[in-house]
Structure formats: structure tokens, C-alpha cells
Write a protein that binds this DNA or RNA. Sequence first.
DNA 1: TTGTACGCGTTATCAC
DNA 2: GTGATAACGCGTACAA
Lengths: 347, 347
Amino acid sequence: MTEKRATIQDVANLAKVSITTVSRVLNKNYPVKDATKKKVEEAIERLSYKPNMLARGLIQNKTQTIGILTPSIENLFFSEVIKGIDAYIKKERYTSFLCNTEGKANYESLMADNLLERSVDGIISIDPQTELIRSGFYEALAKKIPTVLINGYNKGVQCNFILNDQEVGTYEALKYLIKLGHRTIAFLRGKRSHSYDIKESVYRKFMKDNGLEIIEDRILVVNSGNDLETVQQSRELLKKRLKKGAGFTALFACNDWMAVGALNAVNRLGLSVKNDLSIIGFDNTIISQISEPQLTTVDQNMNRLGVLAAKRIKEIIKEKDTEIKKILLDTRLVIRKSTRELKQGNK
Amino acid sequence: MTEKRATIQDVANLAKVSITTVSRVLNKNYPVKDATKKKVEEAIERLSYKPNMLARGLIQNKTQTIGILTPSIENLFFSEVIKGIDAYIKKERYTSFLCNTEGKANYESLMADNLLERSVDGIISIDPQTELIRSGFYEALAKKIPTVLINGYNKGVQCNFILNDQEVGTYEALKYLIKLGHRTIAFLRGKRSHSYDIKESVYRKFMKDNGLEIIEDRILVVNSGNDLETVQQSRELLKKRLKKGAGFTALFACNDWMAVGALNAVNRLGLSVKNDLSIIGFDNTIISQISEPQLTTVDQNMNRLGVLAAKRIKEIIKEKDTEIKKILLDTRLVIRKSTRELKQGNK
DNA sequence: TTGTACGCGTTATCAC
DNA sequence: GTGATAACGCGTACAA
């Protein structure tokens, strides 16, 4: 049922000119007499002609398309990054292939191949899987196509990165807890992610540097990372701990989901942030602002992360051979209501 | 720096066969002798050859690509729909162009054109703008390319739709509030969306049918629709109302964001769901499960909405000329903790 | 079973 | 200013 699409030839015929002329009118790259130009434009209008980007891409070897690999689409952290990418490339008249890797390495590499087949001009990978980086997959990919990685394992890796300074972010958050008088600080993380590992190592170092005892029992681990299950698991875990007397007065959670889960545990047990447990999250996603009380958290400026990645890939595409850069972004502690000064008498 | 990509010709040369043979090995659509097949596969491997989908798409006039138009990417409602679409088309070896229209009609039509230029095989539009449907834009689009619309204005519109039965969903929710003994029910909506209009008309009819007075002052309106601002506005609006004595014991909110905002107002004023205000949301997004107390809400099965849309567009692509269908999906009332039986004595 | 040659819809190159 | 024609990389009718 779908009508056949007009081609440049149809336009040329109708306007009684050559396809070359039509092409020139379209691309405005060579002078065309005003009269003929008008004829062509009328023909384009009448046929509602749209250029075929496949044909154009084939000969120009560029498609005005960026591929994005993301571990999740429902995670508010990632969608904010994607929005940042989107905003920038839209301005530059690019369109994006968004691929949800579900955080699985095999999907991630498969989809990168798929993007290559589709001749995207560049690939941005958000939180790429550590094993793919370690195995050299991304270094190889970057040889074939402009590639920018956002966060993820990057020690000694020869790739373009846009990174959050999670070390500093974690450090500042912990320092704030100390400043509030807390000495017994628990740490809540998910099982598997480079970012959790970073944060845990900062936590350990921080405790040691401040002469605080590291008690393994206060390093809490939940299964998943960024979804409802995380919230539930965190809630149940904290409920169990709080019931039997937590043994700590503050909690650093590796992301807002975990922090919200902990907060829910406090609420459900009839306890309070004020008297019982200060909680600090990470990411400053929207859920940190809709929880009650609102979460103190570490802002990662995800939107800017996306914008910079897009900007960087544009540079690489344009200048072809540029050196490898790692761009580090500051984080910012956002103080809200889930952290309170430790009262004397609390242990 | 990026190395040149191998073509089918390179493979043919290396394997000392014609490109036709290579093509046959790739597509497995004609018999090839095992020996030559092996030679070809080795060559493919050695050159790490990847077919160029642009060239393939050009000649076959299909790209294994679906375009998705969505009003937002950070909205958990839409991302769940997209996940559903994604899951289905992934199985069918399609890839998707995801376009964020930001809920603006001009972006929406521009991006639809963009997708056409890129020769996608079909377009799925989530919550399309009413004005574009009314103006005939989508009916025209559907003539050019397989198109499926998810939700949105559809009265007498000749397009393929996958729809939630929001009328029934709203009706069931209101009925439940009545069953709990509530007689004074307020209605909270956003300014502009077809779905709010539907719900409001059901609300009015329901009140009338049940002999309850419709008091215009109990129809509350916030500006935006699906973000943090919505939560904040809803919270402030409800705080104002609750302070001066609401005049209603239950609230139907058009989506979970608004409901959470209302819930926060109740919490901040030191009131409770139990004694002061029952709240019912809509959508059953993840935030309805992380709020405290958890929200009673109407589940729309967004994932299934996406899957069905993808399934339908696959059908249309395959069978070319099929009749127009509107598929209506049931909703389901999810009873949680934000709705309570009205106590005697409350007005 | 395999190969030759044409066509898909563009842009680039060269000639006029 | 304008037009003919090659080229992009692939699939396929036709020939062998």
C-alpha cells in the first residue's frame, strides 16, 4: 500500500534538469541560476521528495549517525547522560542509534558490530563492561571508528574517556559524615561494577587515614545495581541490621537506589534519620529528590557527561587523527535532609 | 587513523571466487560447494569483513531498522514501553532509531521525516501529539511507511493503534475509592495531554453517575506532566489545600508522579494516608513502589504495550497491505498502601 | 555450482 | 552554470 518514494531522478525529470543540478540545489555547494533553482524546488515540493540517506551515506562514507551503547534505558542515571548526548548531537544534525546492552558483555560487543555494519560515524559507550575494556576490545574498536567511553575501567587503557571523579566524590561524602560527628560509617554496594570497586577502595583508605576501624561486617552488599530489586534488597538488608542494633550511625550508599532502600527501612521501622541513621546516596538522580526526606547525595552532572562525550566524538570525527584524552569531571556534594549531625550519646 | 573497511570484493579476491559466491555464503540463499564455502569463510574471518548495511539496504529497500518516536527518555513510563519494543525487535534482528521529541509537535514531525530519509522499515510513535493526529499527519505518514501509534488521540483516526483502556482503568480506580467509603474525591491532572482529558471526562461521568457532586474546586491542575517539577508542583498544591482543610478524603492522580507529590505533601504536614487522605496513582511505574507508603495505582502493562506495537509493525511490514487495527489493552488496579478505608466521622 | 553485469539513489569528477 | 558519467558496496537475473 505504501506509495513509492520519489528519487532525485524523478525530481530532475519534472524540473527538466539533470540530477546533478538537483543535487546542487539540495546541497547548496555549487552555484545554480535562480530560475532553475526555483524550478527544482517546486518539483521537490510537488513530489515531496526526501533524499535517501543510505545512498548518500554510501558514497560519502558518513551517515550523520552516532551509535550509543548503554547498559540500561530505564535507569535514570543513564537516561540523563543520553539526554545530554542527544541535546548536543541534535544541534550538529546527527541522529543516534540507541542500543540497550542490558549490561551484558556479549550483547555489548554484538551491538558494537551491528553499529559498525550500519556505518555509524562514531560510538559512545556508557559504563562499558570491564572485561571488554581489559580484553582490548575497545582499543581495537577505536582503531576502526571514533569511540568515546563514559566512565568504566580505564587504568592504562588507550581510549578516549569522559569520566566522573568518583574517588573525590566518595571522599567528600565521607568527609562530610565525619564532619557531622559520625565515626561508625557503613558502606553499601552492589556486587559487580567498576564504580563500586572504586568507591569501596576509597572508603577503606578513608577509614584508615582517619584512624577509624574498618569492620568487614559494615560493608554491606546487595545483588543487583540499578533497579527496583536493588531498592528492595537494600531495604530488607538494612531492616535486618537496624532491628538488631546497627552498630553504625551513618551509611554511605553507592547509588541513590540503595540509599532510598535504606531510607525506606528506617521509615518502616519507625526510626528516623535524625535520631538513628544518616544516609548519603550517589548520583543525584531524580529519585533522590522525591524521597522523603530528600537524599543527601553526590551529583555527577550526568547531563554534562553526555554533552562532553558528544562534543569529544564530534572532534574526533572531524579531525580524524587526534590524540587520546581522558576528561575528568568534578562531582559535587548535594546536602539535603537525609544526613544529620550526630547527637551526643548515640554510639 | 581508522583503517579502511574490507568490502565483499576484497573477500572475493582473497578467496579467489566471485563476489556472487561470497554473497551466497553470507546470505545462505543459494547452494555453495563446501570447499569454496570454507575458503570464503576463512577470507571473511581474516579480513574481519562486515557487510555494509547501507549498500544492502539500498538494493533491498529494507534496513532492518525501526524508528521510535518518544516524548521523553527519562520518563519511566516510556522507557518501559521502549524496553518492550526493544525486546521484541531484537529477537527479529531489527535495530532501532530512538528519537526524543521532547513532546513537541514540530520535533515530532521533523524526526519522522528524518526517519523516512533514513529508510527505516517502520515507525512506532509513543503518545503522539494530538495536533499531529488531528491534522492528518499520521494518516499521511502511514501511507508512506508502516506506522503504529501507542496511545494518544484516536477517535475516528485511520491508523494502527495499540491502546491502554484508560477509561476503564480510571473507572475501576474511582470505584475502588467509593468502595472504601470515600464520597469526596478530588482529581489531579496535568495541563495538556489527551490522556488527562480522557481521565477527567471519566471522572466527571463517574461522579455524576454515582450521585456525587462535581465541585470544580476539587479538580486540581499542575503545569507539567512527567518529571520532578510535576512532583514538586503537586506537593505544593496539595500542601496548600490540606493546610486549609482539603474538603476531600481521597485523591485520584493522573499519574504516579503527581501521586507521589501529593503523598509527600501528606508526609510533610505530618498527616497520614490512614487518617487524612487516600491517594491513588496511575501507571504503576517504579516510583510507585519506592515511595513510602507504596502507592495504590493502575497498572498499564507498558512493557506489553511495547511488545504488541513491535509485533504489529512486524506484521504490517511483512504482509504489506493489512487492514487497520486498534488493539485495546486491559489495565489492572494494583492495591497497595496509599488507600485506606474511610473512617466514620471524617467528612 | 559459479561468474558477469546491471541496478539501487546518491555525490564527485570532469567536460562543456 | 550545467550535464554526462563513474563510483560507493551490495544483491540478483541471467548466462555459463
